[in-house]
Each structure stands twice: as C-alpha cells, then as structure tokens.
C-alpha cells in the first residue's frame, strides 16, 4: 500500500468515524440544540464537533483528489516491509502480553515478554536476557504492589494462588 492509498483510506475511515459519532449522539436521543429552560443540550458539544471532524475529513479528501497534500503525491510504501515486521511484532507482542496477563498473570507474562523481546528479537546474551527476565518482574512487584499498593492482574485462579503465597509471606513478615 502506498502512502497515497493510505491517506485516501484513512480520510474515508475518519469521515465514517465522524459520521458514526454523529449518529451515536443522535440515536441516543441527546438534544443537540437549545433546550428551553435548561440551556444547551447534552449532545450539542459532541454532535457539532463531530460534524466539524466530518468536514475536516472531507477537506482532506478534496485535497487528496486535487493532490494538494504531499502524501497524496507520495508513492512510497506506507509502511516499509522491514518496518512492518518490527512494528507488527512489537504491537503483537504487547497484544499477547495483555492477553496473557489475564490468563497466567502479570509476572509470568512479563518473564515471557522479556524473553521474547530481549532474547529472540534483540538477540542479546543469555546473561542479559535472564537478568531482564528476573529483574523486570521483581522491580514491577516492588514498585506497583509494594510501593503503589496496586493489585496487578494475577490471571486464572490457579496462577493467582501462587502469588497469594508470596503476598501472604510479605504481609506476615513486613507489616
């Protein structure tokens, strides 16, 4: 996909998004104008601003057709193949991290995430990899659970049990 095609698709997508927002406000039955005795309706702000978004997207479309934007004349690939790999892998790894956090808990997912990123993608030595694999979860535990007193996702009950043991130890000995 060239930058030129990408700009067209993005402008159309954003136009549809704006219209969708307007429709959303309308179908919720929010008043978009003046309500007597009450003042401006709840839908006024989102509705008219979404209309503005739609008009701005239309302007971008027109500028695309007339070739006014530099992007509309740019025939380079939108995302170069090697970039697509790096960006795609990074985005996918975060996605997998988020899914795993719900299943096997934050800490085990972090270990896997670090292994993947540092060893497989970064091709660092085993020493660095293992240091990161152990260091990150420990640091996260100390920062978020101990210092900020947050309860990070622990995953399914089976995995949650393991961490309850650690938490119990902490509460037994430090508080």
């Amino acid at each position: 996909m060239t930058v030129r095609t990408a700009e067209l698709i993005m402008a159309i997508a954003m136009l549809l998004l704006s219209l969708g927002l307007m429709l959303n406000v309308y179908s919720d039955g929010l008043r978009i104008g003046w309500v007597d005795g009450r003042g401006p309706g709840a839908g006024m702000w989102p509705f008219w601003l979404s209309l503005g978004m739609a008009l701005a997207s239309l302007a971008t479309l027109i500028r695309w057709f007339t070739g006014a934007t530099p992007e509309s004349r740019n025939l380079d690939p939108y995302i170069a193949p090697e970039t697509l790999f790096l960006v795609g892998v990074s985005a996918a790894s975060i996605l997998v991290l988020l899914i795993l956090m719900n299943l096997i808990g934050t800490y085990l997912s972090l270990v896997l995430f670090m292994f993947f990123y540092v060893r497989i993608l970064g091709k660092h030595t085993w020493f660095t990899t293992i240091a990161m694999m152990i260091g990150t979860p420990v640091f996260v535990y100390l920062l978020f659970e101990v210092a900020l007193t947050k309860y990070l996702p622990k995953g399914l009950p089976f995995f949650e049990e393991i961490f309850l043991v650690i938490d119990n130890l902490r509460y037994e000995y430090f508080y």
């Binding site: 975060i94 540092v118 993608l121 970064g122 660092h124 990161m132 947050k150 990070l152 996702p153």
Partner: peptide, 20 residues
C-alpha cells in the same frame, strides 16, 4: 545501549502505568 532493551521496559511501564 541497544534499543531492544529499552523498548520492552517502556512498553511494560506503559501497560502497567495505565492499569495502575
């Protein structure tokens, strides 16, 4: 320092920071 070490740390901070 290679970017492949900093990047995962930043991603982790983003995810957990938003969650926290």
């Amino acid at each position: 320092m290679p970017f492949t070490m900093l990047t995962p740390i930043i991603f982790v901070l983003c995810v957990l920071g938003v969650f926290a």
